[in-house]
Structure formats: C-alpha cells, structure tokens
C-alpha cells in the first residue's frame, strides 16, 4: 500500500502516457480475469464478489465510506503527528548522551518488534475504546522510523561544522539548536515518508480492535461490521478505501517533504551542487 512508486516516466525513458496507461491496462486485465473466473466457476458472491459488485458497493456505500475514511484519516494524521513529535523528542534525548542511547535503544527495538496485535487488547484496557487508543496504536507502529532516522541525522554531523561550532566555544544547546536540529530536517522528512504508510496501517489495526461505540467509527469498524454480516463486496469496498487513504497520505507527505527540502536549501535539493 505504501510502496507505490511515483510515476517517474521521463526518468524511466518511457513517455508520460504509457506510464499512466500501462497500470490502467493491468488493472483492466486483472478485473476481467477476476470477473471471468467468478462467472466460470460460479463462485458465490459471499466468497468472492465480481469486481463490478465491489465498485457498485463502493458507490452505494459512498457516504458511509467517506465518513469512515475521514475519521480514520484524522486518527492516522494524529498518530503520525504524535510519532513525529515524540519520536523527534526521543531522538534528541538519544543524541545527547551515549549512555541514554545505549540504555534505551533496546526498548525502541522492542517497540518495533512487539506484535501490536498482541498488545492492542492491553491498550484498550488502559486507554478505552475511543480515538485515543487508535491514535496510540498508530503512533506506536509508526514511531520507529522517525526515531532511527532523526537520531542518525542528529549524530552524523559534518566534522567541519562541528569544529566551526567548537572554535566559537558553542554550548551544547547552541550546537543542538543551531547545528544538529537543522541538519537533521532531511532525516525527519525521510522518516515521515516511511512512517505515513505505517500510521494508516496502525490506525486501521487499532480500529479493528476498538469495538464500535458510536462515538468513534472509522474504516476498521466498518470492516468489522461488514465481515460479521458476510457483506463481502462491501468489505472489499472498505479495503479499497483503506488503500486509497494510504496512497493519499503517502503522496501528500511525499509532496510536502519535497517542498520542504527544496525550500530548505533552495531550488537545488538537499545535495548541494
């Protein structure tokens, strides 16, 4: 969902149109094969609906899907924002002391490797069944790339720049605020690019666990309800909505990231030419 390559047609040496048309052709062929298989083998719609049925379900359910997508988008954005803020703060802490880094890094790895599905019930007990828990799960899943990228940005500073600051007798804080933090902005953007897809996944995983309670009702709840009622076509429509949501967030962050980086060093990108 998150690794959709941007259309870099001119770089690939193929024209603008084929790079748009080719994926559409693939989509059409897959849909056609899918349709033929369902019809030919008389697969019941509850197991595998026809592609047309999924599109129809998307259209008829559009208001519910739009509403639920909006809820999930908010949770994902809050989750991503929380990871950016908390992750950067942890990275700053890590950059200040090798002892802190050594002592705490294993727990960051733990955060990355712990099966979120296993601790989600615990989070519900602690934090309830509302937006907060969904944002929490989204944040836990998406925070690692921020911590690791920003930490590495804060630590891998050009030796000449460090010497320049030392020559001026710069304090630890001046070096942090005027050198380390600005130097690691590109790393934060890189971390956000990886994390934005994870934030959507996290929000949906959170929603699947948080039972629908009226107050909060995102795509995960919609999927739960459709699955319970064996409305397969509508379930698949909801899955498609999740995918679109992920792509939307990914493309927005890519765009915003490139914009920020271009502004950061003006026009020439981050690599100084």
């Amino acid at each position: 969902m998150m690794a959709t390559p941007a259309t870099t047609s001119t770089k690939n040496g193929i024209g603008q149109w084929p790079s748009i048309v080719a994926p559409v052709v693939v989509f059409a062929v897959v849909a056609l094969v899918w349709h033929v298989v369902v019809v030919a083998f008389k697969i019941p719609p509850v197991i595998l609906p026809k592609p047309g049925d999924v599109l129809t379900a998307m259209w008829t359910q559009r208001s519910e899907l739009m509403r639920a997508s909006w809820v999930t988008l908010q949770a994902s954005l809050l989750g991503l924002l929380a990871s950016a803020l908390i992750g950067s703060a942890i990275a700053v802490l890590f950059s200040q002391s090798v002892w802190v880094r050594t002592a705490l890094y294993p727990y960051v790895i733990f955060l990355q490797t712990v099966p979120i599905v296993a601790i989600a019930p615990l989070l519900i007990i602690w934090s309830g069944t509302g937006l907060r828990t969904v944002v929490l799960v989204s944040c836990i899943i998406s925070i690692f790339p921020i911590i690791s990228n920003v930490t590495s940005g804060l630590l891998s500073i050009d030796q000449n720049h460090l010497d320049l600051f030392r020559m001026q007798g710069a304090s630890r804080w001046k070096t942090l605020f005027k050198l380390r933090m600005p130097s690691s902005v590109p790393n934060l953007v890189l971390g956000l690019r990886v994390s934005c897809g994870l934030a959507v996944i996290g929000a949906i995983v959170g929603e699947l666990f948080v039972a629908s309670s009226g107050a909060y009702d995102g795509l995960g709840m919609v999927m739960n309800a459709k699955q319970a009622n064996y409305k397969t076509a509508e379930l698949m429509a909801a899955i498609l909505a999740c995918t679109f949501l992920g792509i939307l967030l990914f493309v927005s962050v890519q765009f915003l990231g490139s914009f920020v980086l271009r502004r950061w060093t003006k026009d020439a990108g981050f690599e100084t030419s």
Binding site: M167, G169, A170, K178, T265
Partner: peptide, 30 residues
C-alpha cells in the same frame, strides 16, 4: 580562543542558511 578564526578546506557553510545568515553565525553562537 576569541582571537582565532579558522577557515576550512571545504567552505563548511550551513546549507540551510543564506550567505548573510552564515556570516552572522559566529555572532549568534557567541
């Protein structure tokens, strides 16, 4: 220390600062 200044082999300018802001940097640090 304040009597010394160092010019590096590479210009070592901070890429996110303008020329003006780079030249002002020592003032900001001290």
């Amino acid at each position: 220390r304040g009597k010394l200044a160092f010019v590096f082999q590479e210009a070592a300018l901070l890429p996110w600062r303008t020329v003006w802001q780079n030249v002002r940097l020592p003032f900001e640090i001290q």
